[in-house]
Write a protein that binds this DNA or RNA. Structure first.
Lengths: 160, 160
DNA sequence: ATAACGTGGATAACTATTGTCCACGTTATA
DNA sequence: TATAACGTGGACAATAGTTATCCACGTTAT
């Protein structure tokens, strides 16, 4: 049981996109290069983020991706859910309920507990946003790295 | 990202074993039959539980498994960890830290958050024990089912 | 001795994740 | 209007993780 690597990569992609000026976009291939991800697979992740309304995509030449909402409105959980989907971590098989003769009653021996555990996991991820991580970066990264990255992005980005 | 089915089966196995009188054991095959699990694979799960010191095994004819500790001392998390292992849900790739030039500093943009989320997930699973679930069963199951199961177990179990 | 049980390793089947490829639609630009 | 650069969606392959099977072996009751 491990989180998909795509979740981490997607969060980093979102973070990269916070560096982008208004109306600019970054091509998917550039983003995947920066993250060292496989370009073709990463496009799939980007599309999931678009489907989840976290990213906007501009097709055609000079196309690319940008954040759809502002970084304060996008939680880490939003990204997690966009990539991993909405299925919960635990799925009861119902065997034990059968064995105990409590099939149709609403007594979920384990399910309730698992649901509660998952919710407290999720609430931690909901608390933190792309913006709060971005602020941490601004506080902690060496300024030269930040400016270097900033200018790289401004070089590669496309204005509309 | 889904929990292994083995975790659920293992918890149910532990619960079954709470029905067992002192010094009795249940053969692995009987347990797997009750849970509708594949016998050979389920033996592997049982061995993981033995390795984690949650079960005791008695080899030889009239052998089988019994709980090693008392049900109050075994948390749902113990079983989870025995089956899933100790690796955490999230493993940082370090790519972004490289990109930001913060490799060797202790600034874990995501790791800290993920660790915190996982800990709150775990603490929920640690709170509940095999015994607390067993008590729920006793309260909620139709008494005839309970006595039927109890007598099935006493029939199939082996005293030492 | 033999049968019933657990043990551990090798290995296969299955499933989910990750990665690739291609035909296509859209748009900027020459 | 042609072409090149980009995103889209589907089909597909490679890889990794999970589940399942088998077997030779050690232990113990009978």
């Amino acid at each position: 049981m491990q989180m998909k690597t795509g979740v981490e990569q997607s969060i980093y992609a979102m973070l990269l996109l916070t560096f982008l000026p208004d109306k600019g976009v970054l091509p998917g291939e550039f983003i995947s290069q920066q993250l060292g991800a496989s370009p073709t697979y990463f496009q799939k992740l980007l599309r999931k983020l678009v489907h989840a309304d976290l990213l906007m995509s501009v097709p055609g030449a000079k196309g690319g991706f940008r954040l759809k909402a502002s970084p304060e409105q996008i939680s880490v959980f939003d990204v997690y859910e966009a990539i991993e989907g909405k299925q919960s971590l635990y799925a009861s098989s119902g065997v034990f309920e059968d064995l105990m003769g409590i099939q149709n009653q609403n007594i979920c021996l384990l399910s309730d507990l698992m649901t509660e555990a998952e919710q407290s996991w999720q609430s931690t991820l909901k608390r933190e946003t792309i913006d709060s991580i971005r602020r941490e970066i601004y506080l902690n990264c060496p300024p030269d790295h930040l400016t270097k990255l900033q200018s790289l992005i401004e070089e590669k980005m496309i204005r509309n």
